[in-house]
Each structure stands twice: as structure tokens, then as C-alpha cells.
Nucleic acid binder design. Sequence first.
DNA 1: TCGTAGCATGTTAGCGCTAACTTAGACGAC
DNA 2: GTCGTCTAAGTTAGCGCTAACATGCTACGA
Lengths: 337, 337
Amino acid sequence: MSRRSRGTGQVRIEDVAREAGVSAQSVSRYLRDPGRVGPATSARICEAISAVGYVPNLIAGSLASNRSHVVGILLPTLAIPAHAGPVEGLAAALRDSAYEVLVGTTGYDAGAEERLVRAFVGRRVDGLVLTSDVLSAELRRTLTAFAAPVVQIWELPSEPFDMAVGVSNKAVGAAVAGHFLARGHRLCAAVGHAQATDTRSAARVAGFVETLAAAGAPAPIRLDVRMPEALAQADAILARLCAEGPPSAVFCTAGQLTVALHFAARRAGLNLPDDLALMGLDSEFAALVDPPLSVVRVRTYEFGRLAGEMLIERLAGRRPETQMRDVGFEMILRAST
Amino acid sequence: MSRRSRGTGQVRIEDVAREAGVSAQSVSRYLRDPGRVGPATSARICEAISAVGYVPNLIAGSLASNRSHVVGILLPTLAIPAHAGPVEGLAAALRDSAYEVLVGTTGYDAGAEERLVRAFVGRRVDGLVLTSDVLSAELRRTLTAFAAPVVQIWELPSEPFDMAVGVSNKAVGAAVAGHFLARGHRLCAAVGHAQATDTRSAARVAGFVETLAAAGAPAPIRLDVRMPEALAQADAILARLCAEGPPSAVFCTAGQLTVALHFAARRAGLNLPDDLALMGLDSEFAALVDPPLSVVRVRTYEFGRLAGEMLIERLAGRRPETQMRDVGFEMILRAST
DNA sequence: TCGTAGCATGTTAGCGCTAACTTAGACGAC
DNA sequence: GTCGTCTAAGTTAGCGCTAACATGCTACGA
């Protein structure tokens, strides 16, 4: 069974080679591309591997080949399905390529992001997926020196570092504003995310505000909330909005809070959409509540999947035809607006 | 700035050593434990590092020290917050320990699990967190040979491989059944998860069924559904349950489906809890719907956090006092039951 | 004065693998 | 027969770091 040697006591490639009566290099070749060794050798190596119970040491391989076969992804949190989506997409895209996914969560903290990028660079990841559209000068310097492919996801940065996959969050906000205007709303409200590093939420609100202004509507009521605490305070948030207006339509970019506001509005005796129109980003329950919620759907899984594909292209030495991909969004209009 | 050498063109520890006028070993010592070099040397090394822009190659370090400083975690999917929780918890527990988290999603596929474990073993992870309570003989063999600490999370296995953090899913089901019985329900229903490898959902249903049987209640109606597709078919699922009973109480262990069933029941004109009692696992919306849902809360974040702590203990050469930790659960009784 | 203990630092020898080069042999064109 | 070409395999020399051992120095009690 397991044939030990000195050192760390691991079964090494040389143990396989000895067992099969070939050189270590042939075993190495067999493992990375079986077609490059003869059929008889191939068979003997295959047998030898299971005979000695060999599991290649990918760390040693990484050092020798200068390829870690690991891709890193940084995101604010995994607790929100919209952020977990890209990780799933990335893992799916890399599944058949012998790449593994290293995950770092920043908790919306820019300092944590820089620390994690340094840790990932230290591990010599072959590619990096970031959830920030603006990078500090320090970070750009680190990444430039590192020279690995980088994909920024979620937003389409005005100054992309390398590649990007995302959506124009500003366009999302503008589309919602356009929809509200078309329905005849004038005084609107926007509920955003209070995390300063969540530039995506800020961009959606900005697009919303600008479009209303351009149409001559009054400036919308604005409120920024902290998630997930705000979920339990939906009644108070709704009351604050109404106290300043009340608005006839609310755009909520803070994830699940939209559904919570829906319940709060019903508890307050408001009829949707006549007393209040409500729209937000997609969530699992948006279609289930009564009346069902109009939403903007952004396919975040695709962010990760496409990022993975672009990284693979680059790591294979090819240059993807597009460096910046807009996944777009979908307005799903239901009874709440 | 960057001082290149031959080879891969990276800045190496030796470049720092030359710049600081010390040996490479001193730089290595400084990096891992600054207290082990003299203060003057320390200062010169620190300057030299930023002067040459050095980022240690952790891959080379791993090979030499036989410690990867990476921990792997395997889970069925990240799309469900209950499964993303442990990853966050693990990352949080490891944050200050210079360990990174390698994530693998199996999609409830046992084959994928074995593949991923092999890939993680190949990367020589220092520890492993698994979301399975039963391991195949093949897997046990691989892990035994690998000899790294392993924590199984979610369920408390009858035959733990090494360490475990979880909850007795059977006790969860039993507690819900007990609650239903105490409220006078006789004919109940259990909606579970159709994925064969989701033994956690199966255990909850089993505990539920056994407790009802022990109390002499009729065998509950049982239904297994596929998630997340079932979310959109809540009306049909409710209709099927009612056609076979109707039951007076439903225990739904399939995540978010409980909330969807709640809406379906209201659409069907049923009053909760008089016409139908409904209870499930916790979700963000359970408290928000009307009437609010009774739930069982399981702190999955703690699974990951405690698993991380136990791994750190073991990796530091200590033996955690308990090898198996029951995080327990909480029954939150609201108006739906 | 010596011995030895303790600390800071240097030297040596790999960790397990693969890139790059080398060799051996088969085959066919001329 | 000679040469070049091709394929399959072996040989050599690291990848960048750290464990383990070696060295040199200072301090201090007997």
C-alpha cells in the first residue's frame, strides 16, 4: 500500500516512478497530459499510482511551474445571496479546469480588501476577481507588480484595472426612475445601503436621482440604511419616508429590505401600488408576496461564471475578445408598481 | 524599486537579505516572528522589504515547511444562506491566523465531494471542513492517509471521522413534532429535501416521524421536493398535501419553502394557525410575514466559527477538549402554530 | 581564568515537483 | 548508407523558501 520515504513521509512522484520502472519525469508528464507518454508506460504508471496511493503534491508543482492553479475572489460578504452568486458561478466555470477557488470576505472594509489581496498575491493566485470598481493607488501598484489577470465584477468601472464583468448600476437606477415617471409618479424616495464601500448601491441611487432631476421631478427623499439590521426596522424606515413626503413611489436598493418594506406598508394599511409603489432588486420572495413586487433582476451568477471564463482564456495565453462585459439587467414589472 | 533576478523575475527573500545586509534566514525569521531577530536587524529588514517591494512567496514557504496555511471547506451550495453561514464563520475564525479559505461546492453530488477532497488533499490543506455526516469508505481512507484535522459540520455523526460541530437534526424534528402534539395536532405533514445527500433534512424528518409515532399519532404525510424549483410550485405542493389529508400542521425543512407555503396557504384562503399550523427553519422573512412564522433557529455561522477554532487548536498542536460540539437549536414560537 | 549558557545570526541541505535540455531509437527520403 | 526528423523517455538543475544544525558573541558564576 503506502510506501513511505524519509522527509515528510509523503508518497512522492519518485515512489511511483520506481514502482512503474520509469523516470519521475514520465510520471509527471502522464499526470498533466497522458497523451504525451506511450500507452504501455501509461498503463504501468496508472497502476503504480494506485498501488502506492499517490496524491500529487500540487504545492511542489506550483513552485516548480510557477502556476498555482488557484483563483482568488474577494467579496464583501457571503450572507447575501446576490454576493454568493458570483462565487458559485466562478466555481462552476473553473470546475473542469483544475482550478480551485480561494475566497476572501472583506465585510465592506477597504483595509481588509488590501490585506486579502496581499495574502492572495503571496499565495501567487493565477487570477483574481474583485468586487470593487475603484481601487486605491496602493492596490493598483500591488496588482500591477503582480501581473496576474484581474476581473472586477458587479460594476463596470470607468477606469477598469484589467477586465470587468458587471452591470451599469446607474442604468438600473435610471430605469427604475423612468418606470416611476411613466407611471406618473413625481415625489419618489430612494433607500440605499449605508456602507461607504458599497459603490454599487450608491450608483443605483445616483442614476435614479439624476433621471428624476432630468425629468423635472422633485428631488427624491433619500435614506441610507445598514443591513441586515434594517430588516427588523422596516416599519420605522417606512414611517420616516412618509414623514418626509410622503413619496408615491419607493426604490429600495438594499437587498431583502424591499420585501420587508412591503410587509411594513401592508401593516400600515397602505395599498400597493395605489398608495405607494414599491420596487427593488430581485429576491426569492419578490414574486410570492401579495401584491407581487416589481423588481430589477441582475444575474450575479453570470458575473462569476463569465469572470471565470475570461480568466481561463487569459491563463491559456489567449486574449478574450472583450475586456469589459455588460451582463445587463431585466425589469420585471408586477403589481407593486 | 523592484529588483529583479533571473528565474521567474520575482523579488525573492534573498534580494531583501542582500539589501538589508543580512542572511536570507534572518529575513525569513523576521517575517514569521519578528521577535526572534534583534531590533537593529529588524528595522533594516523592514526597510529593505519595502525598498525592494517584496511579497513573500507562500507557495515556496509551504513546500519547505510542509504547512500550506490553507483550510478547505466543502458544502453543497452557497446559494442558500444557511450554507454560506459556515463559510463566513470559518473565514472570521481564521482571519487573524494567516490562514486562507479554499471553498468547494459539491451541488449535493457525492462524486463531486470525492473529487474536491482529492483536489484539496493535493493542495495539502492544513485542515478540512466537510458538510457530510457519512463518509464513503474510499473517502475515509483518503483522509486517514492524509492525516490532517477534519471537522464535519451540520450533523453530529454517529461515527465521526475526527471532530464535529453541529446540531442533532433528529432532535430538531422531534422538537417540532412535540410542539405540534402539545398543540393538539394529530395528522401532520413533513416536507423534506429530495437531494439524497442532504442527510440533514432527512434526519429532521425522521425525528419528526418517530416522535409522532411514539405518541400514537397517525403517520404524517410526507413529501420531498427539489429546491429551489419548489419555491415556484408552493401552491401545487400545498394542494398535494391537502389532497392527502388534509393535515392540520406542516413541518417544512426545505429552507425558504416554508415562507412560500405560507403565502400559498393564504392564497388558498386558509387561516394560520387555525386551518393549518406551519413551521420550518429560520429565514430572514419568517418574522415579517403575517402571521409571523414559528421557526427553529440553527446558528450555522457558529458551525464554521467553531470549526475554525477547533482546527486552529489542533494545528497549534493542542487537542481541543471536546471533539464533538452540539451547537443546539432554538424554537421560536410565533403565531403560525 | 575558564566553562557554559543563552542569544542572534549564518550555513547547508533539502521540500517535491517541473522546465529545459539531452539521449536513444525508429523511420523514411535521397 | 547517411542524414534529418520525429517521438518517447531520461537527466539535470533549479523554483523560493525553511528546518536543522553550526557559529560567534556576550554574560556571568565558580
